[in-house]
Amino acid sequence: MSIGNSPEEDRPSAGPHEDRPPVGRVLRQARIDAGLTVDEVSSATRVRVPIVQAIEQDDFSRCGGDVYARGHIRALARAVGLDPAGLIEQYDAEHGGRPRATPAAPLFEAERIRPEPRRPNWTAAMVAAIVAVVGFVGFTLFGGDDQSGTPVAKAEATPSASPSPTASDAGPAPEPSDSAIAAAPADKVTVKLVATNGNSWISAEDHTGRLMHEGVLEDGDSQTFTDDEQIDLVLGNAGAVEVFVNGKKVEPVGEVGQVQRVSYTKGDPAQG
């Protein structure tokens, strides 16, 4: 115990986590012991400097929610050489455990209604066709006796056929089939994650425990991972992510707002 502690700090602990220093203080001390600056930790983890500083002061209000707070704690702990499991457990105990799925529903409903498929521009096609017809009629009335003018009239009328393919090209592209998702090699495990129902924090490790990727997968984006034996995933918002294993889509691994841990091997697509 350091000199000058207040009487409140010297009181006996009333719970399993109250005798531990705060999560932010542990991360800050570990960073200092590792000889790292806040800027260096921010660059290594891609967590913005103001958020790193707030977390080290045990202020998690800037993280954007418990799911992202856990992800930031995990990333900062690994950057300074700590095991994140104990810090995540302490954070859950101090902040009421895992988040419920219900509060996240309004956000993901708003994200779901945002995309709108483009419709064919029939107005532009009709205008182009009318212009071509008027040009052809005008040429016939004022230059019909000129034999050399016939090819010109045909050339002017030709664009009337072009708007239809152009307008139809503006329609929504067909969805790829499961077999076209990935030509997965038979001697490896390939996992593709697609955010289709909002943002999700994700983490991926290979069979040796090496971190392959960690960060936020934004709505509409995807990430693909390949390993010789096994891929371990953590999905911060499992209901927002579609999972394709070895070229095949698997069943949803969780609900919106749920944090799920799954593993896949070469023998899947059965969920690991």
Rank of each mutant, 00 (worst) to 15 (best):
Y264W: 07
N197V: 15
N237A: 06
E214K: 04
Y68M: 11
Y91I: 07
A173T: 15
N246M: 03
Q29P: 03
S200M: 01
D92G: 07
A104R: 14
P22C: 05
V194N: 06
L233G: 02
G220P: 03
V133F: 13
D92P: 04
H17N: 12
S6P: 06
R74H: 07
R100K: 11
E251V: 15
G257K: 00
G239Q: 03
E214A: 12
Q230E: 09
V216C: 10
R78A: 09
S162I: 15
E242N: 13
K249P: 05
E111N: 13
G257C: 02
T45H: 00
H213L: 06
V245Q: 00
D228A: 09
I202D: 01
S200R: 00
S42W: 03
D221C: 08
E89Q: 14
E94W: 07
T123N: 11
Q147L: 13
V52P: 03
D187Y: 03
G267S: 08
R20T: 09
F244T: 12
V191H: 00
V38D: 11
T265M: 04
V131P: 04
E156Y: 09
Q53T: 13
R25Q: 12
I73P: 00
T166E: 12
Q53I: 11
D228P: 03
A173H: 14
E9T: 14
F108Q: 08
G247E: 01
T140K: 08
